[in-house]
Amino acid sequence: MGIELDVKSFDNALKILSKKYKIFAPVRLKGKGSFSDTDLVTYGEISSYKDIELSEKSRYSPKEVIYPITQTLFYFTEDEYKEPEIDDKGIIVFLRPCDANSYLKLDNIFLKNGPYEDNYYKRLRDKVKFFVIECTKGFSTCFCVSTGSNKFLDYDVFFRFDNDKITCDVKNDEFSYAFSGKEVEFTPEFIEKNEIEVKLPDIDKISQNLEYVFNHELWDEYTKRCIACGRCTVSCPTCSCFSMQDIFYKDNPKCGERRRVWASCMVDGFTDVAGGHSYRQKYGERMRFKVMHKIYDYKKRFGTTMCVGCGRCDDVCPEYISFIKIVSKVTDAVDRGESK
Protein backbone atom coordinates (compact mmCIF):
# COMPACT_ATOMS: atom_id res chain seq x y z
CA MET A 1 0.00 0.00 0.00
CA GLY A 2 1.09 3.55 -0.62
CA ILE A 3 0.22 6.93 0.70
CA GLU A 4 -0.80 9.77 -1.54
CA LEU A 5 0.54 13.16 -0.62
CA ASP A 6 0.15 16.63 -1.93
CA VAL A 7 2.96 19.17 -1.84
CA LYS A 8 1.74 20.61 1.41
CA SER A 9 1.66 17.32 3.28
CA PHE A 10 5.01 16.34 1.76
CA ASP A 11 6.55 19.60 2.95
CA ASN A 12 5.02 19.01 6.33
CA ALA A 13 6.66 15.59 6.47
CA LEU A 14 10.02 17.14 5.62
CA LYS A 15 9.51 19.64 8.39
CA ILE A 16 8.81 16.92 10.90
CA LEU A 17 11.75 14.83 9.73
CA SER A 18 14.16 17.75 9.73
CA LYS A 19 14.03 17.78 13.51
CA LYS A 20 15.92 14.50 13.57
CA TYR A 21 17.51 14.37 10.13
CA LYS A 22 19.52 16.36 7.67
CA ILE A 23 17.71 15.89 4.38
CA PHE A 24 19.60 15.76 1.09
CA ALA A 25 18.30 15.68 -2.48
CA PRO A 26 19.33 16.82 -5.93
CA VAL A 27 19.04 20.62 -6.04
CA ARG A 28 19.51 23.30 -8.65
CA LEU A 29 22.05 25.98 -7.82
CA LYS A 30 21.26 28.98 -9.98
CA GLY A 31 24.19 30.36 -11.93
CA LYS A 32 26.63 27.93 -10.34
CA GLY A 33 27.29 25.95 -13.52
CA SER A 34 30.80 26.13 -14.98
CA PHE A 35 29.59 28.20 -17.93
CA SER A 36 28.04 31.59 -17.35
CA ASP A 37 24.26 31.71 -17.02
CA THR A 38 24.05 27.96 -16.41
CA ASP A 39 22.98 26.15 -13.28
CA LEU A 40 24.61 23.40 -11.30
CA VAL A 41 22.47 20.43 -10.38
CA THR A 42 24.03 18.66 -7.43
CA TYR A 43 23.19 17.26 -4.01
CA GLY A 44 22.34 19.68 -1.27
CA GLU A 45 20.19 20.06 1.82
CA ILE A 46 16.52 20.69 1.21
CA SER A 47 13.58 21.85 3.25
CA SER A 48 10.70 21.64 0.80
CA TYR A 49 9.41 19.93 -2.33
CA LYS A 50 10.29 22.86 -4.55
CA ASP A 51 13.97 22.47 -3.62
CA ILE A 52 14.16 19.03 -5.24
CA GLU A 53 15.39 19.04 -8.83
CA LEU A 54 14.14 16.06 -10.78
CA SER A 55 14.24 17.22 -14.38
CA GLU A 56 17.98 16.86 -14.81
CA LYS A 57 20.63 14.39 -13.72
CA SER A 58 22.85 15.84 -11.02
CA ARG A 59 26.38 16.57 -12.16
CA TYR A 60 27.82 15.31 -8.89
CA SER A 61 26.60 12.22 -7.13
CA PRO A 62 25.27 11.88 -3.58
CA LYS A 63 28.51 10.21 -2.47
CA GLU A 64 29.72 13.47 -0.97
CA VAL A 65 26.93 13.27 1.59
CA ILE A 66 28.62 10.33 3.28
CA TYR A 67 32.10 10.80 1.92
CA PRO A 68 32.89 14.53 1.86
CA ILE A 69 35.47 15.84 -0.61
CA THR A 70 37.54 17.14 2.28
CA GLN A 71 37.21 15.35 5.60
CA THR A 72 39.21 16.21 8.67
CA LEU A 73 40.54 13.09 10.37
CA PHE A 74 42.38 14.72 13.24
CA TYR A 75 42.91 18.11 14.75
CA PHE A 76 46.38 18.64 16.11
CA THR A 77 47.23 20.74 19.07
CA GLU A 78 50.90 20.34 19.83
CA ASP A 79 51.27 16.54 19.81
CA GLU A 80 47.66 15.63 20.49
CA TYR A 81 45.47 13.87 17.93
CA LYS A 82 41.83 14.81 18.29
CA GLU A 83 39.06 13.27 16.26
CA PRO A 84 36.45 15.78 15.05
CA GLU A 85 32.95 15.50 16.44
CA ILE A 86 29.98 15.02 14.18
CA ASP A 87 26.46 16.16 14.86
CA ASP A 88 23.95 13.62 16.06
CA LYS A 89 21.35 14.15 13.35
CA GLY A 90 20.53 11.32 10.99
CA ILE A 91 20.84 11.57 7.22
CA ILE A 92 18.02 11.20 4.74
CA VAL A 93 19.01 11.07 1.08
CA PHE A 94 16.56 11.33 -1.79
CA LEU A 95 18.24 9.43 -4.59
CA ARG A 96 17.54 7.31 -7.63
CA PRO A 97 18.15 3.54 -7.54
CA CYS A 98 21.51 3.81 -9.36
CA ASP A 99 22.83 6.23 -6.75
CA ALA A 100 21.37 4.21 -3.90
CA ASN A 101 23.24 1.20 -5.24
CA SER A 102 26.40 3.27 -5.45
CA TYR A 103 26.36 3.51 -1.64
CA LEU A 104 26.54 -0.28 -1.49
CA LYS A 105 29.52 -0.16 -3.84
CA LEU A 106 31.28 2.35 -1.57
CA ASP A 107 30.49 0.07 1.38
CA ASN A 108 32.59 -2.67 -0.19
CA ILE A 109 35.66 -0.47 -0.26
CA PHE A 110 35.25 1.35 3.03
CA LEU A 111 33.77 -1.42 5.14
CA LYS A 112 34.80 -4.70 3.54
CA ASN A 113 38.12 -4.21 1.79
CA GLY A 114 41.07 -5.14 3.99
CA PRO A 115 40.92 -6.10 7.66
CA TYR A 116 39.38 -2.89 8.99
CA GLU A 117 36.25 -0.82 8.61
CA ASP A 118 36.87 2.83 7.83
CA ASN A 119 35.46 4.53 10.92
CA TYR A 120 35.02 7.95 9.31
CA TYR A 121 32.95 6.48 6.53
CA LYS A 122 31.00 4.20 8.82
CA ARG A 123 29.93 6.87 11.23
CA LEU A 124 28.20 8.79 8.43
CA ARG A 125 27.06 5.76 6.48
CA ASP A 126 25.30 4.28 9.52
CA LYS A 127 23.07 7.34 9.67
CA VAL A 128 21.79 7.02 6.12
CA LYS A 129 18.12 6.44 5.35
CA PHE A 130 17.31 5.75 1.72
CA PHE A 131 14.43 7.79 0.31
CA VAL A 132 14.42 6.35 -3.18
CA ILE A 133 13.09 8.37 -6.09
CA GLU A 134 11.20 6.32 -8.65
CA CYS A 135 13.03 6.49 -11.98
CA THR A 136 11.37 4.75 -14.90
CA LYS A 137 12.75 6.71 -17.84
CA GLY A 138 16.25 7.76 -16.86
CA PHE A 139 18.30 10.11 -18.99
CA SER A 140 19.97 9.78 -22.36
CA THR A 141 23.32 8.48 -21.06
CA CYS A 142 21.94 6.10 -18.41
CA PHE A 143 22.70 2.39 -18.63
CA CYS A 144 21.80 1.20 -15.15
CA VAL A 145 19.89 -1.81 -16.48
CA SER A 146 23.08 -3.11 -18.09
CA THR A 147 24.99 -2.84 -14.82
CA GLY A 148 22.16 -4.25 -12.75
CA SER A 149 21.75 -1.09 -10.67
CA ASN A 150 18.28 -0.15 -11.89
CA LYS A 151 16.56 -1.56 -8.81
CA PHE A 152 16.89 -0.80 -5.14
CA LEU A 153 14.45 -2.59 -2.89
CA ASP A 154 16.07 -1.99 0.44
CA TYR A 155 14.66 1.52 0.73
CA ASP A 156 13.24 3.20 3.79
CA VAL A 157 10.67 5.19 1.85
CA PHE A 158 10.01 5.06 -1.87
CA PHE A 159 8.62 8.05 -3.75
CA ARG A 160 6.85 8.56 -7.03
CA PHE A 161 6.90 12.21 -8.02
CA ASP A 162 4.29 12.72 -10.70
CA ASN A 163 4.33 16.49 -11.14
CA ASP A 164 2.83 17.67 -7.88
CA LYS A 165 1.22 14.35 -7.08
CA ILE A 166 3.40 12.42 -4.71
CA THR A 167 2.93 8.79 -3.78
CA CYS A 168 5.11 7.01 -1.30
CA ASP A 169 5.68 3.57 0.14
CA VAL A 170 6.92 3.68 3.70
CA LYS A 171 8.84 0.47 4.21
CA ASN A 172 10.60 1.51 7.38
CA ASP A 173 7.97 1.97 10.09
CA GLU A 174 10.23 4.45 11.79
CA PHE A 175 8.99 6.99 9.24
CA SER A 176 5.26 6.22 9.36
CA TYR A 177 4.63 9.07 11.77
CA ALA A 178 5.77 11.65 9.27
CA PHE A 179 3.63 10.71 6.30
CA SER A 180 -0.12 10.93 6.39
CA GLY A 181 -2.51 10.89 3.47
CA LYS A 182 -4.93 8.76 1.53
CA GLU A 183 -4.01 5.11 1.27
CA VAL A 184 -3.71 3.95 -2.33
CA GLU A 185 -2.54 0.91 -4.25
CA PHE A 186 1.10 1.50 -5.02
CA THR A 187 3.79 -0.71 -6.48
CA PRO A 188 7.18 0.92 -6.94
CA GLU A 189 8.43 0.71 -10.49
CA PHE A 190 11.95 0.56 -11.82
CA ILE A 191 13.38 1.26 -15.21
CA GLU A 192 13.55 -1.92 -17.28
CA LYS A 193 15.18 -0.60 -20.43
CA ASN A 194 17.56 2.29 -21.01
CA GLU A 195 18.10 4.02 -24.33
CA ILE A 196 21.61 2.61 -24.11
CA GLU A 197 22.37 -1.05 -23.63
CA VAL A 198 25.95 -2.03 -22.87
CA LYS A 199 27.26 -5.56 -22.88
CA LEU A 200 29.70 -5.90 -19.99
CA PRO A 201 32.69 -8.16 -20.53
CA ASP A 202 32.86 -11.62 -19.00
CA ILE A 203 35.35 -11.25 -16.16
CA ASP A 204 36.51 -14.84 -16.36
CA LYS A 205 37.43 -14.30 -19.97
CA ILE A 206 39.41 -11.21 -18.98
CA SER A 207 41.19 -13.19 -16.28
CA GLN A 208 42.19 -15.79 -18.82
CA ASN A 209 43.36 -13.16 -21.27
CA LEU A 210 44.62 -10.50 -18.92
CA GLU A 211 47.76 -9.51 -20.80
CA TYR A 212 45.87 -9.39 -24.06
CA VAL A 213 43.29 -6.99 -22.64
CA PHE A 214 45.81 -4.86 -20.77
CA ASN A 215 48.13 -4.46 -23.70
CA HIS A 216 45.35 -4.02 -26.22
CA GLU A 217 45.75 -1.17 -28.67
CA LEU A 218 42.29 0.19 -27.81
CA TRP A 219 43.82 2.07 -24.88
CA ASP A 220 46.31 3.98 -27.05
CA GLU A 221 43.60 6.25 -28.41
CA TYR A 222 42.97 7.63 -24.94
CA THR A 223 46.61 8.56 -24.43
CA LYS A 224 45.92 11.07 -27.17
CA ARG A 225 42.34 12.04 -26.37
CA CYS A 226 42.18 12.11 -22.58
CA ILE A 227 43.46 15.25 -20.80
CA ALA A 228 43.63 13.63 -17.34
CA CYS A 229 41.36 16.24 -15.78
CA GLY A 230 39.62 13.83 -13.42
CA ARG A 231 36.06 15.02 -14.07
CA CYS A 232 34.90 11.42 -14.71
CA THR A 233 36.16 10.22 -11.35
CA VAL A 234 34.88 13.22 -9.43
CA SER A 235 31.39 12.80 -10.83
CA CYS A 236 31.43 9.03 -10.47
CA PRO A 237 29.29 7.88 -7.54
CA THR A 238 31.55 4.89 -6.89
CA CYS A 239 35.04 6.39 -7.14
CA SER A 240 36.40 6.46 -3.62
CA CYS A 241 40.14 7.13 -3.72
CA PHE A 242 41.65 9.73 -1.45
CA SER A 243 44.92 11.28 -0.33
CA MET A 244 45.92 12.37 3.13
CA GLN A 245 47.09 15.90 3.79
CA ASP A 246 48.64 17.36 6.89
CA ILE A 247 48.56 21.10 7.33
CA PHE A 248 49.34 23.63 9.99
CA TYR A 249 47.32 26.77 10.36
CA LYS A 250 49.06 29.84 9.03
CA ASP A 251 47.94 31.99 11.92
CA ASN A 252 48.81 29.35 14.51
CA PRO A 253 51.49 26.95 13.25
CA LYS A 254 51.41 24.92 16.45
CA CYS A 255 47.95 23.68 15.48
CA GLY A 256 46.83 21.97 12.35
CA GLU A 257 44.95 19.04 10.99
CA ARG A 258 45.22 15.82 9.07
CA ARG A 259 42.53 15.41 6.47
CA ARG A 260 41.68 13.23 3.59
CA VAL A 261 40.70 14.63 0.23
CA TRP A 262 39.33 12.89 -2.84
CA ALA A 263 42.00 11.76 -5.26
CA SER A 264 41.72 10.66 -8.86
CA CYS A 265 43.65 7.90 -10.61
CA MET A 266 43.30 9.99 -13.79
CA VAL A 267 45.12 13.02 -12.40
CA ASP A 268 48.91 13.53 -12.25
CA GLY A 269 50.51 12.64 -8.95
CA PHE A 270 48.25 9.73 -8.03
CA THR A 271 51.05 7.15 -8.14
CA ASP A 272 54.04 9.35 -7.27
CA VAL A 273 56.42 7.55 -4.93
CA ALA A 274 59.24 9.11 -2.94
CA GLY A 275 62.18 9.96 -5.14
CA GLY A 276 60.22 11.02 -8.19
CA HIS A 277 59.06 7.77 -9.78
CA SER A 278 55.46 7.38 -10.91
CA TYR A 279 53.41 4.73 -12.64
CA ARG A 280 50.83 4.80 -15.43
CA GLN A 281 52.25 7.96 -16.94
CA LYS A 282 50.30 7.53 -20.17
CA TYR A 283 46.70 8.71 -19.98
CA GLY A 284 45.61 5.59 -21.88
CA GLU A 285 47.07 3.49 -19.06
CA ARG A 286 45.11 5.53 -16.52
CA MET A 287 41.97 5.04 -18.55
CA ARG A 288 42.59 1.31 -18.61
CA PHE A 289 43.17 1.29 -14.87
CA LYS A 290 39.93 3.16 -14.20
CA VAL A 291 37.77 1.26 -16.65
CA MET A 292 39.05 -2.13 -15.52
CA HIS A 293 38.31 -1.23 -11.92
CA LYS A 294 34.75 -0.29 -12.80
CA ILE A 295 33.95 -3.37 -14.86
CA TYR A 296 36.46 -6.07 -13.99
CA ASP A 297 38.66 -6.23 -10.93
CA TYR A 298 36.21 -4.77 -8.44
CA LYS A 299 33.73 -7.41 -9.54
CA LYS A 300 36.35 -10.10 -9.18
CA ARG A 301 36.94 -8.95 -5.63
CA PHE A 302 33.40 -8.26 -4.45
CA GLY A 303 31.20 -10.16 -6.89
CA THR A 304 29.37 -7.09 -8.17
CA THR A 305 30.16 -4.62 -10.93
CA MET A 306 31.45 -1.35 -9.51
CA CYS A 307 29.91 0.86 -12.20
CA VAL A 308 26.23 1.60 -11.56
CA GLY A 309 25.58 2.92 -15.05
CA CYS A 310 24.62 6.47 -14.10
CA GLY A 311 26.47 7.82 -17.16
CA ARG A 312 27.83 10.88 -15.37
CA CYS A 313 31.35 10.21 -16.67
CA ASP A 314 30.05 10.46 -20.21
CA ASP A 315 28.08 13.63 -19.36
CA VAL A 316 31.03 15.53 -17.90
CA CYS A 317 33.94 14.58 -20.15
CA PRO A 318 35.14 17.77 -21.85
CA GLU A 319 36.87 15.68 -24.52
CA TYR A 320 33.74 13.71 -25.36
CA ILE A 321 35.26 10.40 -24.34
CA SER A 322 32.53 7.87 -23.72
CA PHE A 323 33.09 5.32 -20.97
CA ILE A 324 30.16 3.40 -22.41
CA LYS A 325 31.96 3.14 -25.74
CA ILE A 326 35.15 1.96 -24.02
CA VAL A 327 33.23 -0.76 -22.18
CA SER A 328 31.80 -1.96 -25.49
CA LYS A 329 35.26 -1.96 -27.01
CA VAL A 330 36.63 -4.02 -24.11
CA THR A 331 33.78 -6.51 -24.39
CA ASP A 332 34.35 -6.81 -28.11
CA ALA A 333 38.08 -7.24 -27.65
CA VAL A 334 37.57 -9.87 -24.99
CA ASP A 335 35.05 -11.79 -27.10
CA ARG A 336 37.22 -11.59 -30.20
CA GLY A 337 40.41 -12.31 -28.30
CA GLU A 338 38.93 -15.45 -26.86
CA SER A 339 37.79 -16.75 -30.22
CA LYS A 340 41.34 -16.42 -31.56
Binding site: I109, M244, A263, Y279, F289, R301
Partner: peptide
Protein backbone atom coordinates in the same frame (compact mmCIF):
# COMPACT_ATOMS: atom_id res chain seq x y z
CA UNK B 1 56.90 -3.50 -4.01
CA UNK B 2 57.00 0.18 -3.23
CA UNK B 3 53.87 2.17 -4.03
CA UNK B 4 52.29 5.42 -2.99
CA UNK B 5 50.00 4.78 -0.05
CA UNK B 6 47.80 7.06 2.00
CA UNK B 7 45.85 4.64 4.18
CA UNK B 8 47.68 1.30 4.05
CA UNK B 9 44.41 -0.45 4.84
CA UNK B 10 42.86 -0.92 1.41
CA UNK B 11 40.74 2.23 1.17
CA UNK B 12 42.67 5.05 -0.45
CA UNK B 13 43.35 3.26 -3.74
CA UNK B 14 46.79 4.71 -4.44
CA UNK B 15 48.74 1.45 -4.23
CA UNK B 16 46.32 -0.61 -6.29
CA UNK B 17 47.76 -2.36 -9.34
CA UNK B 18 44.93 -3.88 -11.35
CA UNK B 19 43.09 -6.03 -8.85
CA UNK B 20 45.80 -6.04 -6.21
CA UNK B 21 46.17 -3.72 -3.26
CA UNK B 22 49.88 -3.62 -2.49
CA UNK B 23 49.11 -2.59 1.10
CA UNK B 24 46.88 -5.60 1.68
Amino acid sequence: FERKMSCSIGKCGHCKINETYVCL
